[in-house]
Design a protein around this nucleic acid. Structure first.
Lengths: 133, 133
DNA sequence: CCTTGACCCTGTAGTGACTACAGGGTGCAT
DNA sequence: ATGCACCCTGTAGTCACTACAGGGTCAAGG
């Protein structure tokens, strides 16, 4: 399997696959006589894991930890649970922030009568001292 | 007003103020005899505008546009409205993504009985081929 | 007068997670 | 033999800052 097929199979860019190798998420594969990377099913599994983790919003660092834990099949998965819960808490914080943000934006936009900039409620809302900058 | 006082007044880091100047959001202020930056109320207004925009999640590029529009007080604020609505749409897209993400994460975490990694539902959920990586 | 410490200056490099080349080599079909 | 798609390495760019390193300035205290 060349890097192109692996990338296609996992919906990843070729450059990203090489980058995962460089930062140590994906082990260096064998090389062909022409120095092409040659991947096997284990690489496909590992890269799929990485991509799924990224799609769930885990950082590369968290995925590195999860991979290390996943490799040790006897271990209790308490640490996995901790990482996942920490990430969920993080996502929920961002969610709350964005929700507040969206409602603030909607309010600002709703007040705009679209007259001249001098009377624009959006500009005004951005200028805490009461006057446009 | 030195850069330190301006930074404090706007809840900004000193380095960030200098960075806004470097990228052209904040005009270069006068300098003291000892080459210190000296800011006036206009700078305070402008920086407050920038910070408020950032707090509402506008990109620096969008704020640059908003500032240019705000400076032209006769102009219709239709363009301001367009920028703000585009940003709101963006925020709402992210909100939807994060909401989906959070529920997926909650589901994954809920299934974890915290036994060994070999049976961990979290690890399993990350491994689309059915086996841990 | 000297020193201490808080503040300021410029410039560069680092963050996260890639992305985008530049400049070249490989492999296969025509 | 030539074209083309693919691959290689290495470097620089993205965004919005942040963190120094290595120095200069200023006011107060001794």
């Amino acid at each position: 399997m060349t890097i192109g097929s692996l990338a296609e199979a996992t919906q990843t860019r070729v450059e990203t696959v090489r980058w995962y190798e460089k930062v140590g998420l994906l082990p260096p594969p064998a090389r062909s006589s022409g120095n092409y990377r040659l991947y096997g099913p284990e690489h496909l599994r590992r890269l799929s894991f990485i991509r799924r983790g990224r799609a769930l919003g885990f950082t590369v660092e968290q995925i590195r930890d999860l991979l290390a834990l996943a490799d040790d099949r006897e271990r209790s998965c308490g640490e996995v649970d901790i990482i996942a819960r920490a990430h969920l808490a993080d996502v929920e914080r961002k969610l709350a922030d964005l929700t507040r943000l969206a409602s603030e934006l909607r309010e600002v936009i709703g007040q705009c009568g679209c007259g001249s900039v001098a009377d624009c409620r959006i500009i005004e809302a951005l200028s805490p001292l009461g006057e446009p900058a």
